[in-house]
């Protein structure tokens, strides 16, 4: 079943085409990787999906419903959660309050919101930090807080924007484990990632872009052997052999 679809997405910033005619479909329950060199337009695609800026052309569908141009908060409400590459914690609030604020998107009373928050924090392994002020968390836990907060909005589709960047090897294992557990809950994930170890081990399918255009799509093995992908990452010389 197709849960989510991007059709001929185009985004121009002035004269620059940051995203040019990108299309992909995401099946329910899969982990869909989105890769590409720096500046290839991955985060722009995320920002278009969550409507941080209007798209220039093309359409986005979620559960057969057109969501192009819908308000950002509405997109969260219908079940698309996201994290930010540059983390955005609610700095002066405690970790618990950060997650409670997110939990309110699906429940009304504070009591319920607190329960949802505690449950989500336990699932994401952040419970031991609940009373810490979000600003004082180290980067690894800030990234985890991003995921926890997005999870507390109870999404069906989760957009993860470089949640593994800047983590040490142990934290990386933890992050991979967490993403797998989220998938096992039946939540579909689109992940943008630079760290190949992460993206190659957990993705069911990968979509590669460069200069805003699709260069390859397929299972990890196909994509990693694709000539255009190697060329984009390593340069033409390596693509020969």
């Amino acid at each position: 079943m197709i849960l989510f679809e991007v059709k001929n997405l185009v985004k121009h910033f002035g004269g620059l085409a940051a995203v040019n005619n990108v299309s992909f479909q995401v099946e329910k329950g899969e982990i869909f990787g989105l890769i590409g060199p720096n500046g290839s337009g991955k985060t722009t695609i995320f920002n278009c999906i969550s409507s941080y800026f209007p798209v220039t052309g093309g359409n986005i569908y979620f559960k057969d419903q057109k969501i192009t141009g819908m308000k950002t908060n509405k997109i969260c409400k219908i079940g698309i959660g996201r994290t930010f590459q540059v983390v955005k914690p609610l700095g002066r609030l405690s970790v618990l309050d950060n997650v409670i604020a997110a939990a309110f998107s699906k429940v009304q009373t504070k009591h319920e919101a607190r329960d949802v928050a505690m449950e989500t924090m336990e699932f994401c392994g952040l419970l031991h930090r609940k009373d810490v002020i979000a600003r004082s968390l180290p980067i690894g836990e800030r990234k985890r807080l991003e995921i926890t907060r997005a999870m507390a909005t109870r999404p069906e589709l989760l957009l993860l924007d470089e949640t593994a960047a800047g983590l040490n090897p142990t934290e990386l294992e933890g992050a991979i484990d967490l993403i797998k557990r989220i998938r096992d809950k039946g939540i579909t994930i689109i992940i943008v990632e630079h760290i190949m170890k992460v993206i190659m081990t957990i993705s069911d399918r990968i979509h590669a872009i460069n200069f805003g255009q699709t260069i390859a799509e397929g299972v990890p093995k196909e994509v990693s052997n694709n000539k255009a992908v190697i060329e984009a990452y390593l340069g033409e010389d390596y693509a020969q052999g």
């Binding site: 969550s50 955005k88 609610l90 309050d97 699906k106």
Partner: peptide, 16 residues
């Protein structure tokens, strides 16, 4: 409070 701390993050958490 969420709006005060970060308006973009607040929007992404479903806050109008």
């Amino acid at each position: 409070l969420s709006i005060r701390e970060d308006q973009d993050a607040a929007e992404s958490l479903g806050i109008d």
